[in-house]
Design a protein around this nucleic acid. Structure first.
Length: 671
DNA sequence: CCCGCTGTGATTTTT
DNA sequence: TCACAGCGGG
């Protein structure tokens, strides 16, 4: 055998070797899920399934990448490469790039990220609202997203502001030849349901489907899968889904736990495999996790077990306030690092909201502890990055108004606000893009010579680079750099900064992304369009140097931590209103918060510290806090309650002191 | 046309 | 506390 089935436990082996018909793998946290998926792909190929007929879908690019890399170690890398392993969104882009014309889009459609989306929504709200009407753009965005994920591509009727905004938003996206994240799914499903030829093509292509994190799929995603899985000849679909209903934490984004809870309903008579042996955590940690999750109704019954007996008890530490919490976490990590020689990478601090990371960061920095903050405010939200990407995007598709508006007068080139405003009106009137409107003589004739010349110059700039970028062997990175130099982008960037350091850091950001583009060209043939797709869909770029060397303590939200594991975990802010979050209590989603906590706990391998504060700074002033209601659900035998005040004031026993010194000496001797 | 200031309002999670 | 938007001045 090219790979080793005997490394798998019994249920894992069943999962891997069940290759035909629907298969539901209920994989608890830390039960070797990724291993099973990749082993199954390898097994399929080994038994004659062509690699290109296998489709494995995940939610994050990181997971897709990890699976690709692992598979490449199990079978010949050349064959592994042929397996399609991608996210839902990337898969949709691939399908739509080849077939979007059937839906009336051009296949060079733009992908709108959240920023673009918000820009458009805000614009529509101001355009459509009456004098005293107000609508929170963020709320509007969420409502529209929810509607789309339920399969609605337009409101039933346009009677109120929100539905008018929704309708206008969809219309405008279509005329801009753009899709947002939800459209990628929605339009793909539309394509497959309305165009049998397209459906047949993709159905034939993929004969074996695997879906990871199935508990996070929403309605559209299930529909998409069902379309691809259903066999033309009526035979049973070869669909394998892997998931854990206890780790369903994306309900707020439209995920339907029912997809996994009622899998049999969608794909009758599946083989059901449960993976219950956890290879990650000690029993103390695992039992704590189990004691929490068992309070949830509506679960697939399962019980995780581990043979890592005992281990340190889970500590629940009570803190006076959030400052001391952060300080204690930093100190405890530091101490453990020094005493037990644990590398910084073994530690993670988990929190509910990104805002909580700030204090932790400060304290780690103060103690010179290296750390990396995952997520948070994105690289791509930076002005300079968005500007450069908007230039790139305009070269690919100048009819994308949002991008064009962004760059048309930045750096300033004499196309003022008033001219742009009139051009927009003209474009709405003529039902054309802004780009077309700006070149329409019936519009430009009304302008002053100066404005007309400015527009003419800008057009010739775009035109020249558009041409050179579309040459077969062009180097987009070089071209884009030349364009930026021609418009004095960098001097202008520096001019807009308060300090030289800021200017330098912004310039570095831009240089980084240009380097990324160059690297992309070397590994892909998808051109500038492909690069922009990747930028839109794969937002977490890793700094290569950091990846090689140790990168430090991980600071991460509970959501983003799913799928990861760390020897030592600190779970902070376990207070009522934070976990469970106030909002979920109001909306009646406390079960999901419990699952979120469950996910957090099950990240820990060896030790777990949970902290809560009696008070916390909120909007600049101190507010009292209560411990989370979840705390009372912890099974008492595995936990140890600690009060920071007592901890600091307990006299050190001789024995403990000796043990601690012995640890230190042995640590020093190792050096 | 650009910059800085002031006041206001907001904090869930993200492909 | 902080971030951002809108306004007023240079």
């Amino acid at each position: 055998m090219a790979f080793r089935l005997f490394d798998l436990n019994d249920p894992q082996r069943t999962a891997v070797t069940t290759t035909e018909g629907p298969l539901l793998i209920l994989a608890g946290a830390g039960t070797g899920k990724t291993r099973v998926i990749t082993a199954r792909a390898a097994y399929l190929i080994h038994n004659g399934t062509p690699p290109e007929a296998i489709l494995a879908v995940t939610f994050t690019n990181k997971a897709a990448k990890e699976m690709r890399e692992r598979l490449a170690t199990m079978i010949e890398p050349l064959r592994a490469k042929k397996v399609t392993m991608s996210t839902f969104h990337a898969l949709c882009v691939r399908i739509l790039r080849s077939d979007a014309e059937r839906l009336g889009y051009k296949n060079n459609f733009a992908i709108y990220d959240e920023g673009d989306q918000m820009g458009l929504i805000k614009k529509l709200i101001t355009r459509l609202s009456a004098r005293d009407e107000k609508l929170d753009p963020n709320l509007a965005k969420n409502l529209i997203s929810k509607a789309k994920n339920d399969g609605h591509s337009a409101p039933a009727e346009e009677k109120n502001l929100i539905s008018a905004v929704f309708a206008g938003y969809q219309r405008e996206l279509k005329t801009l030849n753009a899709m947002d994240f939800d459209d990628l799914l929605l339009q793909t499903v539309k394509l497959l349901s309305e165009h049998p030829e397209a459906l047949e093509k993709w159905r034939k292509r993929f004969t074996h489907l695997m879906i990871d994190e199935f508990q996070d799929t929403n309605r559209l995603q299930l529909e998409l899968i069902a379309f691809l899985a259903r066999r033309h000849d009526g035979s049973r679909p070869n669909i394998c889904v892997v998931g854990d209903d206890d780790q369903s934490i994306y309900g707020w984004r439209g995920a339907e736990v029912s997809n996994i809870l009622e899998f049999e309903h969608h794909f009758p008579n599946p083989v059901v495999v449960k993976l219950e042996q956890n290879y990650r955590s000690t029993t103390a940690i695992l039992n704590t996790a189990n004691s929490i999750i068992k309070h949830n109704p509506r679960r697939r019954p399962k019980s995780l077990w581990s043979d890592k007996e005992g281990g340190e008890k889970v500590r629940i530490v009570q803190m006076p306030d959030d400052r001391q919490e952060a300080q204690w976490v930093a100190e405890d990590i530091h101490q453990r690092h020094v005493v037990s020689c644990e590398p910084w990478e073994s530690f993670a601090v988990l929190f509910r909201m990104n805002a909580q990371s700030r204090l932790i960061e400060e304290n780690l920095r103060r103690m010179q502890v290296p750390y990396r903050l995952i997520g948070g405010r994105s690289f791509f939200d930076r002005r300079e990055i968005r500007d450069v990407l908007a230039y790139a995007s305009t070269l690919v598709n100048p009819h994308d108004d949002v991008c064009l508006l962004r760059i048309i007068n930045s750096p300033a080139r004499g196309i003022g606000e008033k001219v742009v405003e009139r051009a927009l009106e003209h474009s709405i009137h003529q039902k054309t893009s802004l780009f077309t409107a700006l070149s329409d003589p019936s519009f430009t004739d009304q302008l002053t010579d100066r404005s007309r010349r400015a527009i003419g110059d800008f057009f010739s700039l775009i035109d020249r680079y558009e041409t050179s970028v579309s040459q077969p062997f062009s180097n987009p990175a070089t071209e884009l750099t030349a364009l930026l130099n021609e418009i004095d982008f960098f001097p202008d960037l520096h001019r807009g900064c308060k300090t030289p350091e800021e200017g330098l850091s912004r310039e570095t950001n831009v240089r980084d992304i240009l380097a990324d583009l160059d690297r992309f060209r070397q590994r892909s043939s998808e051109g500038l369009r492909g690069f922009l797709d990747e930028m839109a869909l794969d937002r977490d770029r890793e700094q290569d140097e950091e990846k090689e060397q140790g990168s430090g303590v991980t600071l991460i939200t509970l959501h983003a931590a799913k799928g990861l594991e760390f020897p030592h975990v600190y779970l902070v802010g376990l207070e009522e209103g934070i976990i469970p979050h106030e909002r979920s209590r109001m909306e009646g989603n406390v079960d999901e918060e419990r699952r979120l906590l469950y996910v957090g706990i099950t990240r820990a391998m060896k030790t777990l510290n949970i902290t809560w504060c009696r008070g916390r700074m909120k909007w600049g002033s101190a507010a009292p806090c209560n411990p989370s209601t979840f705390i009372k659900d912890f099974a008492p035998e595995n936990i140890e309650h600690v009060d920071l005040f007592k901890l600091q004031n307990t006299p050190v026993t001789e024995q403990a002191a000796k043990a601690s010194f012995a640890d230190m000496f042995s640590a020093i001797e190792k050096l």
